[in-house]
């Protein structure tokens, strides 16, 4: 009896969480003009409409570029920062860690506004680069957290063994440390990409005029009407931001299974 109640409760919670998402996905395949039930038939027309909508495609390309660059920069910086923090005794290590992780803890709006004000203050206007910088600040903590956790688990003596065998510190990094770090690097890059791709708050503050990302584009479209195109766009976003990490995770699992570690 008690267990059944708990089961029911769990089902309700899941329904509450995923039903809206399911509705969006379902309605994106609706043939009707109106984004509402009942469905009148299965159709890909809203996806075609998206494809033909220049504004949406532009936003999509912007988001993609932004996400990829952000992932690249965040991951590179994140690896370097983690190496410095974990492998070397640098003064003020704790302080530096806290500062690097802080963007997760500070409310996003506050961070967005302060970066905007700061850049205005030093006389840098809004630009794509600034938007990118903002996204890097947001995503860097996640990369550092995953990479650091993995780096702590890489035994120092494996690197020492490589050194003793004649590999220079650089060669040791590229032939031992980085390959062992790869799952975390990949996870960090995926995190960075999806967070950047999803981000709206910061983006609204930082984006230069005329530039839209997918989330700000949806936001803008919602102000005019609730078109079923938005459902289709939502479906695409779900596929990207959920599917990509899942794909990455199974790839990592497959790789490590091959090695038996």
């Amino acid at each position: 009896m008690g267990w059944n109640l708990i089961r029911l409760y769990a089902v309700l919670v899941y329904l509450f969480m995923f039903l809206p998402v399911a509705v969006v996905v379902l309605l994106s395949f609706n043939a009707s003009q109106f984004g509402a039930f009942p469905m009148t038939g299965f159709s890909m027309r809203w996806f075609v409409a998206l494809w033909e909508n220049d504004a949406v495609m532009r936003a999509f390309r912007t988001s993609l570029l932004l996400g990829l660059l952000c992932a690249l920069i965040s991951t590179t910086l994140g690896i370097l920062a983690s190496l410095a923090l974990v492998r070397y005794r640098i003064p003020g290590r704790n302080l530096i860690t806290t500062v690097l992780i802080a963007p997760i803890l500070v409310p996003e709006v506050v961070l967005a506004v302060s970066l905007l004000l700061f850049l205005n203050f030093i006389g840098i206007g809004k630009s794509f680069l600034m938007l990118l910088a903002g996204h890097v600040i947001f995503t860097l903590p996640f990369v550092i957290l995953v990479v650091q956790a993995r780096l702590v688990g890489i035994r120092r003596d494996v690197e020492e063994a490589a050194l003793s065998l004649g590999a220079s510190p650089r060669q040791t990094f590229f032939s031992v440390t980085l390959p062992l770090l790869m799952p975390a690097v990949a996870a960090g890059a995926l995190f960075a990409f999806t967070i950047s791709f999803d981000n709206i708050t910061g983006t609204l503050f930082w984006k230069p005029g005329g530039v839209e990302t997918v989330p700000t584009q949806i936001f803008a479209m919602l102000r005019h009407s609730i078109s079923p195109e938005i459902n289709a766009l939502g479906t695409v976003m779900i596929v990207l931001t959920v599917g990509l990490p899942l794909l990455g995770a199974s790839l990592a699992r497959w790789l490590s299974m091959k090695r038996g570690v």
Binding site: R155, V158, E160, A162, S164, L165, G166, L180
Partner: peptide, 27 residues
């Protein structure tokens, strides 16, 4: 250390987990 031409053996083996036995030895 990498210019000293030494062989080092550790308590915890310290093999490269991402390399096969042959690749480890060839390193």
């Amino acid at each position: 250390i990498h210019k000293r031409n030494l062989g080092l053996v550790f308590q915890n083996y310290a093999l490269f987990p991402h390399k096969t036995v042959a690749e480890n030895v060839a390193f």
